[in-house]
Design a protein around this nucleic acid. Structure first.
Lengths: 228, 228
DNA sequence: TCAAAAGTGTTCGCTATACACCCATGG
DNA sequence: CCATGGGTGTATAGCGAACACTTTTGA
């Protein structure tokens, strides 16, 4: 029989963290899901996550779970909502603090792979375990909002990228299309990009750029809002 | 001796909700604080809040606590962050799901007043109990962001208001100043306001307006973004 | 040889901004 | 009578949206 050695005067819920991990494959947004190996929802796809430890804050916990389950280090992680519907977990009362994370897909190595993990295109995600559909929807929405205020998109791209890739990324996240030429001009004008000196190896390939973090910090300091 | 009758295999944190309640006095933003009657932080000011019940979701809990502690019904309430630093409460591990609420100051009646409550101007808030300073700061920041996407400001104004009041409100929230004449034109142009037919009693008083919720719903449906 | 992609220009219209002016009211 | 505040008007600059042209590359 299980030992129930942690006792309280009033009932306490369990607390977990779940993580919506976004990656960009060069054309569209993808999200990392793992297949559940145990009940409930065994065999269903779900967001990586797990129980919060008593000595860590939620962000530390989310990063730890991420590492444990997928081997990934996130370039960016942000808490966006806590889900508390009383019966969202059939076993007991569980509330989950949800994060979304942005990773560079190119740098993903594979991880320990205790569980089967897969990158799903955002529009091809199957029905998920628990209320994870809802969590994913809200994460996408919050990412869309966030990108209006901060250039978080660059966390999804390789260190060096073409303007075309950047445009595809923004189009995926915001679910719009831009005129290629206007997008080029806008980006040049913003001065947030540093053009990379391409070796003379391959002439007439598209320019490569890097995100200019210093310039961004400077602009932000002067009070500046990113518009899209 | 206390009875500790709720037992678990693993330790569970306590979960509370806290609420940052914003009101607008016609000139500046205010926030409702209550004076703590018990330790810890007895005598200090704090945000209203309390423990989450096992059968309610967090939003319901936040609304319940709000009603119990202040007698208020919020016109608008929004979850914005969950605070989880391990020692944020000296008694035991407590995580708190934080909301901000917008209420019409004019309609506040007073409440049961079990605790002493007071409306503090945002720039005159004293040092608060727990990590409530941090919670308040983040709430102000999130309100500022939210108002770029949704016209939540109207929840803080009386049903009918002058353009000048509306401008003061936006200036308080965003911490900027607008040219009076440009603000008038912008508002008229947005078509989100309905001019109220003033009785002939007081000629040459400023026009009164109401928020046009139907028009807003229509614009939003067509895909529309509020800019400030 | 021809389509596709990359880089650069031009035009037009809207809107944010910075101002000026008129009128009614109340001390 | 004049300061104050409310309502309306006007000019300009900058940016976004739409669209044209040129060159290079690779099938």
């Amino acid at each position: 029989m299980e030992e129930l050695k942690y006792c309280y005067k009033y009932p306490h819920p369990s607390v977990t963290t779940d993580c919506v991990i976004f990656g960009f494959d060069g054309t569209k947004l993808r999200v990392l899901l793992i297949e559940r190996g145990i009940e409930p929802f065994k065999g269903k796809w779900a967001l990586p996550g797990g129980f919060l430890r008593m000595d860590e804050d939620a962000e530390t916990g989310a990063l730890r779970e991420l590492k444990e389950e997928t081997g990934l280090d996130a370039a960016y992680i942000k808490q966006f909502h806590t889900f508390t519907t009383p019966n969202r977990d059939p076993r007991e009362r569980v509330i989950t603090i949800a994060y979304y994370a942005l990773v560079r897909l190119q740098e993903v190595t594979g991880g320990d792979d205790a569980a089967r993990a897969e990158w799903y295109a955002l529009d091809k995600v199957p029905a998920l375990a628990f209320d994870h559909d809802q969590i994913l929807r809200m994460a996408s929405y919050e990412l869309k909002r966030q990108i209006h205020f901060e250039p978080v998109g660059f966390e999804l791209l390789p260190k060096q990228f073409t303007i075309k890739e950047l445009q595809s990324l923004y189009e995926s996240i915001l679910d719009v299309t831009f005129d290629r030429r206007n997008f080029y001009k806008k980006m040049q004008h913003l001065e947030l990009l540093k053009q990379v000196d391409r070796g003379e190896s391959k002439p007439r390939q598209p320019f490569l750029f890097e995100f200019n973090a210093e310039k961004y910090a400077e602009l932000k300091h002067k009070g500046f809002r990113l518009e899209f």
